[in-house]
Write a protein that binds this DNA or RNA. Structure first.
Length: 561
DNA sequence: CGGATTTGACCCGCGC
DNA sequence: GCGCGGGTCAAATCCG
């Protein structure tokens, strides 16, 4: 069909709209025409002319058109014209033509005829195509990002799967270790006490013990090595997860970071005479063991708890006061004069919450009565102050290190060469001593006298800032050895980093033993370095059934230099 | 009066 | 079995 309608502008594109129609056709039209400004895609609002009967929101309604008028094409800026035909007759008769008039873009110049309309149409299409391309580009970009997102999701899922698989692998290894350990220790215990019982059973037990013992020594060594092949970081993470996984167990939450000890499920660790094998790893409470009777489990738990509770953190500090202000509330429940020290030892119990098991002893040093020795024991079962909480992980990890990390080297000494290289701290600041009956970490603040620079405005003691990896000790746990071995860690603290003692002390008590080893981390880079060091230590660990009674890191450091 | 402290008694593990 | 020493209990006392 020939196009009966032509659409063009007059001299003023905003005021005259001329729709041409071949002669002979005289039809009234009603159009809704929207004139758009192409520069901003907004309607032009300043149109005038008789053709426009009304203007509403940029929509011009033309009721009658002079189809035979001839106008000149505008030279003004182009406009997009949208027309809605509201005349059904037109739509029916000239639908195509009318539609041609839609979205017209008038040219900057040209004749007021059909060609001009076509020219405008081509420019409209050009802009349309351009925008369409832009849209397509954007769409392509979005698609690409989606693909990338999916790819990353896949990678993440794979990492998670690998992580979980590795975690399960480590758990399985430790379970195996624990089974061996439990069997062996039980048998040894039987042997020790068995002389007063029926010998016929003992003989059977000996046979079994000999068998198991041999297998244990081999498997333990192998498993250690295998465990040591695992990155400490991975072990850390896994221990952390395990800790979370079993957080609902009977005593979880109370000993969050001592889980390795608790999870060992081996009560014999409290027996200093039989605990050499006690810390080879942990086994979740629910893991089946050879000795799985309820009584045994309960007994082991009790003993484990006892061990945890007996691990201690001691702080030596010069103070005129009878007690160091550590941010917790204490109630004195006893006092006793201990042998070897004329100064009475006072016993305090935490009263911040009912049932809190944390206790502390305060006693002046017999050699220097200006020195106050505060020993913490137990774990808070209540929220601590924010400051205390800030240090909880640090001290807890250190406690775990003490409880789990006897780390015997072949000669019974801690391999501290790497530690020595790692740590650039003044000597004598912290001491770890498991010299029985209870493993104790001692922070000696007397070498770092409480001066104005080491006291908070509130008069609290300041300790070095500690930044200890949360599950460091758990990582160590894979090679844990004799708890009763004596060893010392000296020179591991770097003072003057402004941590208040009150922040630290409750946390020491938190974990029974933590702070001193926690204080090992004066250097911000210490964590990573120490993990590497311990990893190396673990890697060098060999089974040593005759660990020496004492060793010192300082000695090792000295020996290494 | 209620909570904190004191203090003698008691318990328990360990060594002899 | 007994004594010792560390740790805890609990009645008495103190104190705000």
């Amino acid at each position: 069909m020939d196009k009966p309608l032509g659409l063009s502008f007059g001299t003023d594109p905003t005021s005259s709209l001329i729709i041409s129609q071949p002669p002979g056709i005289n039809t009234a039209w009603k159009h809704d025409i929207i004139i758009m400004d192409p520069s901003n895609d907004r309607p032009l609002n300043h149109c005038s002319g008789d053709e426009y009967r009304s203007i509403s929101n940029g929509k011009r309604v033309i009721t009658e058109m002079d189809f035979f008028a001839v106008g000149s094409c505008p030279k003004q800026k182009a406009c997009i014209i949208k027309k809605e035909c509201i005349d059904e007759r037109v739509e029916q008769q000239n639908e195509d033509d009318v539609n041609i008039g839609l979205n017209l873009l008038t040219g900057n110049s040209g004749s007021c005829n059909k060609s001009m309309v076509e020219d405008g149409t081509s420019q409209t299409k050009e802009v349309y195509d351009q925008r369409k391309k832009e849209l397509e580009l954007l769409q392509a970009e979005i698609d690409h990002m989606n693909e990338e997102n999916q790819l990353l999701k896949g990678i993440l899922n794979q990492v998670n799967r690998n992580y979980y698989a590795l975690q399960m692998h480590v758990v399985a290894l430790k379970q195996r270790q624990q089974i061996h350990k439990a069997t062996t220790v039980k048998n040894e215990e039987k042997q020790r006490k068995g002389s007063i019982f029926a010998r016929q059973f003992l003989d059977l037990g000996k046979a079994e013990r000999a068998e198991m013992g041999e297998g244990r020594s081999q498997s333990t060594s192998e498993e250690r090595n295998r465990d040591c092949a695992v990155s400490p970081n991975i072990v850390e993470s896994m221990e952390h997860n395990k800790s979370q996984m079993i957080s609902n167990s009977s005593i979880s939450g109370v000993f969050p970071v001592l889980d390795p000890l608790r999870r060992s499920g081996d009560g014999e660790i409290s027996d200093h005479k039989t605990s050499e094998e006690a810390f080879h790893g942990w086994v979740p409470n629910k893991v089946p063991k050879i000795n799985t009777s309820r009584d045994v489990d309960d007994e082991q738990k009790e003993e484990t708890m006892s061990m945890i509770r007996k691990a201690r953190v001691a702080v030596r500090a010069r103070s005129e006061a009878s007690m160091i202000s550590d941010g917790c509330q204490w109630r004195k429940y006893g006092q006793k004069v201990a042998k070897g020290n004329p100064c009475p030892r006072a016993y305090y119990r935490c009263t911040m919450a009912a049932g809190c098991t944390v206790r502390k002893q305060v006693q002046r040093c017999s050699e220097d009565q200006a020195v106050l020795i505060t020993t913490y024991e137990g774990h808070h079962n209540h929220p601590l102050s924010p400051a205390a909480m800030a240090m909880a992980s640090t001290t807890s990890a250190a406690a775990s290190m003490l409880l789990s990390g006897s780390m015997p080297s072949p000669d019974g000494l801690m391999n501290t060469n790497l530690l020595a290289k790692t740590l650039a701290c003044p000597p004598g600041f912290a001491t770890i001593s498991a010299s029985a009956p209870f493993p104790t970490v001692t922070l000696d603040l007397t070498h770092s006298p409480i001066s104005s620079s080491s006291q908070s405005p509130q008069g609290h003691l300041l300790l070095p800032s500690l930044n200890f990896p949360h599950n460091f000790a758990s990582a160590l746990n894979v090679s844990a050895g004799a708890l009763h071995n004596q060893y010392k860690v000296s020179g591991l603290l770097s003072p003057h980093q402004g941590m208040e003692l009150p922040q630290i002390l409750p946390l020491m008590a938190d974990t029974s033993v933590s702070a001193a080893t926690a204080a090992l981390t004066a250097d911000p880079n210490f964590t990573a370095a120490l993990v590497a060091a311990i990893s190396s230590i673990i890697g060098n660990v060999q089974a040593s059934s005759n660990a020496n009674n004492s060793s010192t890191i300082r000695n090792s450091i000295d020996n290494s230099t």
